[in-house]
Design a protein around this nucleic acid. Structure first.
Lengths: 140, 140
DNA sequence: GAGCTAAATGCAACAATATTGCATTAGCTC
DNA sequence: GAGCTAATGCAATATTGTTGCATTTAGCTC
C-alpha cells in the first residue's frame, strides 16, 4: 500500500524519498488521525528522526494527491483508504476511540449539490465528518 | 438577533456580559469565518479591547449552544444562521470570496446515517462543508 | 558506478494559534 | 446597594504552522 502511494507520487514527478516513505508507513500503520508532531513522536520512539517542517511538506503533497486527508475536526491526518473518490470525502469519526472510517457516495454528493444549486452555489468538493460511536465502542 | 442569542445564553445560566455581546455583534455583522484574533482585530479597530483568551472562551460557549460554529476548513467561527438543526451542520464555502451559507437537511443526514449503520457506526452529529463558488463569484 | 542537477531536506528563526492558573472585576439576586 | 459567584484580564507557556537558506540526495546521463 505504501508502495502504491509511492508509485503515484513518482508518476506525478515527485521523488521517492525516505521521509515520504516513513510518513506513509506511519499513517498506514496507525490508522487514526495523527498530527505532524504525533508522527514525529512515533518516529522518534523508533530512533528515527524527521524535521517537523519536512513532515508538513510531505503531508501537503499527500493531501494534494488525495493520498492522505486532513481531518478537520481534529487537525490530524489519515491516509486515504479509498481508491478514487475525487471531491467526495466522508468520514465516520468515533468520539470514543478516535477511529476513522472513510467512505464516499455519489448520491449523497448529488443531494448536497442539488441543495446548493438552489442557492446558486456550485459545489466542487465535499468534506463531511460524522461524529458518533463505532460498532465496538457502541456496544459498551 | 444578538438579543436572541443573549436570551438563550441566559436561559442556560450564563451571564449577559460585555465580551459576549461584542463577539456576537461582530460575528453577526461580518458574516464570514473569523478567527478569535480576527475578532480581536476588528474590535481593536473600533477602539474596543478584549483579551484573546476571553474571546476563545466566549466562542466555546457559543459553539456548545450551537449559536456559532467552527468552520473546520478555515478554523474560523461563524454565527449559526439556523434556528434549530441539532446535529446537522452543512456549509457552502465559497473558495473565492470566503462567504458562508449554512443549511441543514434531514434527508441528507438520514442518507449518511444509513451509510454509517452499514458499518455499524452510530452517527450523532453531521458536519459537512462544500467547497465551491457562490452565485456571485461563479458568474465571473 | 561517477558526476550532474533539480528537488527535497534540515535548520534556525519566527509567526500564529491555543491553553492554564490565578488575581481582579462585574453580572445577577436579594 | 451589598454579597456571591461567574466571568474577565493577565502573564506565562504550549502547540501548531511558516519562511528563507544552506546542505544533501534521488534519479538521470554517460
Amino acid at each position: 500500500m505504501v508502495q502504491d502511494s509511492i508509485r503515484i507520487l513518482q508518476a506525478q514527478g515527485h521523488k521517492a524519498t525516505r521521509p515520504r516513505k516513513l510518513v506513509l508507513e506511519i499513517l498506514e500503520e496507525m490508522d487514526r488521525p495523527l498530527s505532524p508532531y504525533d508522527i514525529q513522536g512515533v518516529l522518534r520512539q523508533r530512533g528515527k528522526y524527521l524535521n517537523h517542517v519536512t513532515i508538513y511538506r510531505v503531508l501537503d503533497i499527500l493531501c494534494s494527491l488525495n493520498l492522505a486527508h486532513k481531518m478537520l475536526s481534529s487537525g490530524g491526518f489519515v491516509r486515504c483508504s479509498l481508491d478514487m473518490a475525487e471531491g467526495c470525502h466522508r468520514f465516520m469519526v468515533c468520539q470514543h476511540c478516535g477511529a476513522i472510517r472513510e467512505f464516499a457516495d455519489k448520491e449523497l454528493c448529488q443531494g448536497e449539490n442539488e441543495f446548493a444549486r438552489n442557492f446558486g452555489f456550485h459545489a466542487e468538493h465535499h468534506h463531511s465528518e460524522l461524529a458518533g460511536l463505532c460498532s465496538r465502542c457502541y456496544r459498551k
